Simulated scan of single mutants.
Amino acid sequence: MPGTHIRHATLDDEDALGRLDRATWSTLHAVTPPPREPYEPFFTPRSGPRDHLVAELDGRLAGYIRLGLPTDVASNAHVRQIRGLAVAEEARGRGVGRALLRAAVEEARRQGARRISLRVLGHNTPARKLYESEGFVVEGVQPGEFHLDGAYVDDVLMGRPL
């Protein structure tokens, strides 16, 4: 996407990524409570800078995608899972999410993965349309898996081969 640069995250990105994560929190995609002060570190031992690609749009951090292993089981090591995607409000509609998704697919291939998967809430229509347009298909639905804002929401499992 014009003006969009994708790169691996660094430790120096932690504060900006934390702010982005807090600013984009919504029950449209989050199943955890909203972040509170004091803020938890963005990077964790399970999910550090190496597991994140960040998008810069016109020189400013505009989004991230988190890629990791779906389990710790060796027989599942050929799969990568998208474990988070966020795009700053002012960058939406400019191709940042698509660029991050494509970069994650390429990174998964580079790591030797044969398949990529993700989970998305059933009511998150914009994300589902993006994933479908990039070749992801619904592989399963867990009906009413989460209770958010007074409603039961499906957990939709999607994936694609690499």
Rank of each mutant, 00 (worst) to 15 (best):
residue 1 M to G: 13
residue 1 M to Q: 00
residue 2 P to D: 14
residue 4 T to R: 00
residue 4 T to I: 14
residue 5 H to T: 10
residue 6 I to H: 08
residue 6 I to W: 06
residue 7 R to P: 09
residue 8 H to V: 03
residue 8 H to S: 12
residue 9 A to P: 01
residue 9 A to K: 09
residue 10 T to C: 06
residue 11 L to M: 06
residue 11 L to T: 09
residue 12 D to M: 09
residue 16 A to N: 02
residue 16 A to H: 02
residue 19 R to F: 01
residue 19 R to H: 06
residue 20 L to H: 00
residue 20 L to T: 00
residue 20 L to D: 01
residue 23 A to Y: 00
residue 23 A to I: 04
residue 23 A to L: 09
residue 24 T to F: 00
residue 24 T to S: 13
residue 26 S to T: 11
residue 27 T to P: 01
residue 35 P to H: 03
residue 41 P to C: 06
residue 41 P to I: 07
residue 43 F to Q: 08
residue 43 F to E: 07
residue 44 T to K: 11
residue 44 T to Q: 12
residue 46 R to L: 14
residue 47 S to G: 05
residue 48 G to H: 09
residue 48 G to A: 03
residue 48 G to S: 10
residue 48 G to E: 04
residue 49 P to A: 15
residue 50 R to Q: 15
residue 50 R to N: 13
residue 52 H to V: 02
residue 52 H to P: 09
residue 53 L to T: 00
residue 54 V to S: 11
residue 55 A to Y: 07
residue 60 R to K: 14
residue 64 Y to F: 15
residue 66 R to I: 03
residue 66 R to A: 14
residue 67 L to N: 02
residue 69 L to Y: 13
residue 69 L to A: 14
residue 69 L to P: 05
residue 71 T to M: 08
residue 72 D to V: 10
residue 72 D to Y: 11
residue 72 D to C: 06
residue 73 V to F: 13
residue 74 A to Y: 11
residue 74 A to I: 14
residue 75 S to L: 13
residue 77 A to I: 05
residue 77 A to N: 13
residue 78 H to M: 07
residue 78 H to C: 08
residue 81 Q to P: 07
residue 82 I to S: 04
residue 84 G to K: 10
residue 85 L to Y: 02
residue 86 A to M: 09
residue 87 V to M: 10
residue 87 V to L: 10
residue 87 V to A: 01
residue 87 V to R: 11
residue 88 A to D: 13
residue 88 A to P: 08
residue 89 E to C: 01
residue 89 E to N: 00
residue 90 E to T: 13
residue 91 A to S: 15
residue 91 A to E: 02
residue 92 R to L: 02
residue 96 V to Q: 00
residue 96 V to N: 09
residue 98 R to A: 14
residue 98 R to N: 03
residue 99 A to S: 12
residue 100 L to T: 03
residue 100 L to M: 06
residue 101 L to W: 02
residue 101 L to G: 00
residue 102 R to K: 15
residue 107 E to Q: 13
residue 107 E to D: 08
residue 109 R to P: 01
residue 110 R to A: 14
residue 112 G to Y: 01
residue 112 G to A: 08
residue 112 G to H: 04
residue 113 A to C: 14
residue 113 A to W: 01
residue 114 R to W: 05
residue 115 R to G: 05
residue 116 I to G: 03
residue 118 L to P: 03
residue 120 V to C: 05
residue 122 G to L: 00
residue 124 N to L: 08
residue 124 N to F: 07
residue 124 N to H: 12
residue 124 N to Q: 00
residue 125 T to K: 12
residue 128 R to G: 00
residue 129 K to D: 11
residue 130 L to E: 05
residue 130 L to W: 06
residue 131 Y to W: 09
residue 132 E to Q: 15
residue 132 E to R: 15
residue 133 S to T: 09
residue 135 G to A: 05
residue 135 G to K: 08
residue 136 F to S: 07
residue 137 V to H: 11
residue 138 V to A: 08
residue 139 E to F: 01
residue 140 G to V: 11
residue 142 Q to W: 13
residue 143 P to F: 09
residue 145 E to F: 15
residue 147 H to R: 15
residue 147 H to W: 13
residue 148 L to R: 02
residue 149 D to G: 15
residue 149 D to R: 11
residue 150 G to L: 09
residue 151 A to N: 12
residue 152 Y to Q: 01
residue 152 Y to A: 12
residue 153 V to N: 04
residue 157 L to R: 12
residue 158 M to L: 08
residue 160 R to C: 02
residue 160 R to V: 02
residue 160 R to T: 11
residue 161 P to S: 13
residue 161 P to I: 11
residue 161 P to Y: 12
residue 162 L to M: 04
